[in-house]
Amino acid sequence: MKHSGKVALVLALLGAIVVALMLFGARLGLWEPLTGFGLYRSCLNPLGLVILVAGLVALISSLIRREKGEILAAAVAALVGLACLTPLMMTTINPQPRAAPIHDITTDMVNPLSFEVLDDSRAGARNSLAYGGPEVAAVQAEAYPDIAPITTALTADDAYQRALTIAQDLGWDIVASDAERRRFEATARTSVFYFADDVVLAVTPLENGSRIDLRSVSRVGKSDQGVNAARIRAFQQQFRQ
């Protein structure tokens, strides 16, 4: 087929745009994060396979015809298709362990922080902000045994100001802050799919410093795929620097 390489390349470029919309459509306000995630899970592999096959067919055809320009276009198309299939290949070669079936992570499982401003009416929320109790705590303790409060020699006021600055640097949207009580609530979003997780942080004075507790809760999904624990770790690492 004449111009098969260019046709395959156009298909690949359109496919790349579709994949970008799956990943970032929610950020653009096109749909809810779950919609983009659902499209990604159901459509990425078939789309990648179609692009890869079209690119390979065009590549073979162009090689037979010895059309240099078409060969390059077809090769690029095939590479785009292969890139789309890379997540499937990676999980097949190196399956990742299943994440814990929880979406609420806290540094204090005995007396978890409560949300006072954010509530179950927050946009797109399907999960409650009420803590799940001992069952959730037991799963967290087994899956994320390193999650614990931060203790620091900083005064409570200094620790609170540092925590607030770090949260803003991490891109969290501060919903409410109370400097007098040294606590704030915020919403953090994932860079891909734009899922929203809600965070509450409080600083408690100690005799020789202070203690910082956090709790991070996903708005949707039974499992957070480890995102909330990773968020708390990232905050703690930056705080300790």
Rank of each mutant, 00 (worst) to 15 (best):
V117I: 14
L85P: 02
M89C: 13
I64H: 07
G133D: 10
G15E: 09
R122S: 12
A77T: 09
N127T: 09
L72R: 13
R233P: 05
R181N: 14
Q140E: 12
G133W: 04
D224N: 05
R233T: 12
A159L: 04
E70T: 05
S191I: 13
C84W: 06
G171R: 00
S218W: 02
P149W: 01
A20I: 11
T187S: 10
P95E: 05
E70I: 02
P46T: 11
R98C: 04
S42D: 12
G5E: 03
I17G: 08
D224W: 01
G38K: 12
A77E: 01
R219Y: 00
V110Q: 15
R98A: 14
F235W: 00
A75I: 05
G124T: 11
G209S: 11
I64Q: 13
A20Y: 03
L9M: 11
A54L: 04
Y40V: 09
S223Y: 07
F37D: 09
P87W: 13
Y40S: 07
I150L: 15
Y160T: 10
R215G: 01
L154N: 11
R182K: 15
L52D: 02
D158V: 08
V10G: 02
T155G: 15
V192K: 03
S42E: 10
A167G: 15
E207W: 04
A78D: 07
V80C: 09
D173E: 14
V200A: 13
L47T: 07
V7R: 15
D173A: 08
A167R: 00
Y194E: 09
L170Q: 12
E32P: 01
R162L: 12
P205Y: 04
L23V: 09
P145M: 11
A99K: 02
L206F: 02
A230Y: 00
H3M: 13
L164N: 04
E185S: 05
G55Q: 07
A234D: 14
L52S: 06
D213V: 06
M22G: 06
Q96P: 01
L154F: 06
L82M: 14
T92G: 10
V217H: 03
A202M: 10
H3P: 02
I105S: 01
S61M: 13
R66H: 11
L47E: 09
D108F: 02
E70C: 07
E185V: 06
D198R: 05
K2D: 15
S62H: 06
M22I: 10
R98V: 12
S177Y: 06
F235Q: 00
I71S: 03
R211E: 11
D178S: 06
P87N: 13
